[in-house]
Design a protein around this nucleic acid. Structure first.
Lengths: 173, 173
DNA sequence: CGTGAAACATTAGCGGC
DNA sequence: GCCGCTAATGTTTCACG
């Protein structure tokens, strides 16, 4: 699972594919001076081993009306579970296996505006990357979703004024 | 340049392509109940208008030895230019058109560890997303590159403990 | 928008280093 | 083991109805 050997040729293939994921196997083979068959075998191996997680089209948020990009730091309640079950005798108990962190993570998966979420070091627990149309949309997201979530106790938002660099290409060479 | 009409069919094509950028035109046409030719024409229009910025392979940082992901907030010097030219008569002057911001942005483009950089609202000026192998690599990047840059006057780093969500797919439906 | 045919790409099998 | 050839299959692409 972890130990997949990646040699210099593999790295060159990866460097090419993470810049242009639609190049034909023939083109790639030509650029690395290899014939198509071993090149394809290497690509398939990299795909199956999970080094290549997938192929995607990158879209332009501006042209799709997503003019606002926000990074939101979130702090969660840590003690106890948010939803308590009430037993038939009237006593309450924490649902086992439903911590604040777990519920928050599940919510994050379900919010399409949130395109990334990391647990972070520092005084805030999570950082969210949020794509929305405009401030009205952002405001709705905050009121109805994020601040409405029972586990969230504090948030701190910064907006992107300008994107200086934005690449999915990892530094692998 | 901005006003490209995108109808419901275009959006469905985009939704498919931003999940799997290697689907054949035939497959996409089938999924949206269209024949291959008009489907391909729409895709080409979306590519040429810049709605589709490109196609890439996404790689797994862990399996490539990039175990550490950091977000670094940066504050820049704002008054004056960093490099002063000395005239032949011995007087000094700012190089015109070489502000701190411009030099910093150029440096960011040249650092492969920095995969994203935004100008941000708030008390810090820029936020960087940095992929490195380990803490030793990060330390070298900070000492030799970021803190060494003449325009940088303050930095604040947070590390990713866990990635809860990470998608390039924008919320377009 | 759909059809069809030419050009091109992918992929499996097999032999050689 | 890894490479490269060939041949069959599938895909893209364009002119035209």
């Amino acid at each position: 699972m972890a130990g997949v050997e990646i040699d210099a040729i593999d790295r060159r293939i990866l460097a090419i594919l993470q810049e242009n994921g639609r190049l034909s196997n023939q083109d790639i083979a030509e650029r690395i001076n290899l014939s198509p068959s071993p090149c394809l075998r290497r690509i398939r191996r990299l795909e199956e081993s999970g080094v290549i997680r997938g192929y995607v089209a990158l879209l332009d948020p501006q042209r799709l009306g997503l003019a606002l990009l926000a990074y939101v730091d979130v702090r969660l309640e840590k003690r106890g579970g948010p939803a308590v079950s009430v037993r038939s005798d009237g006593s309450t108990s924490r649902r086992p296996g439903a911590t604040h962190a777990e519920l928050f993570r599940a919510a994050v998966q379900a919010w399409p505006e949130v395109v990334a979420c990391h647990a972070m070091t520092g005084d805030m627990d999570y950082m969210l990357r949020v794509h929305v149309e405009d401030m009205a949309h952002f405001s709705r997201f905050m009121q109805d979703q994020l601040l409405h979530h029972p586990s969230v106790i504090d948030v701190k938002t910064s907006f992107s004024l300008d994107t200086i660099k934005e690449t999915t290409a990892l530094p692998i060479l």
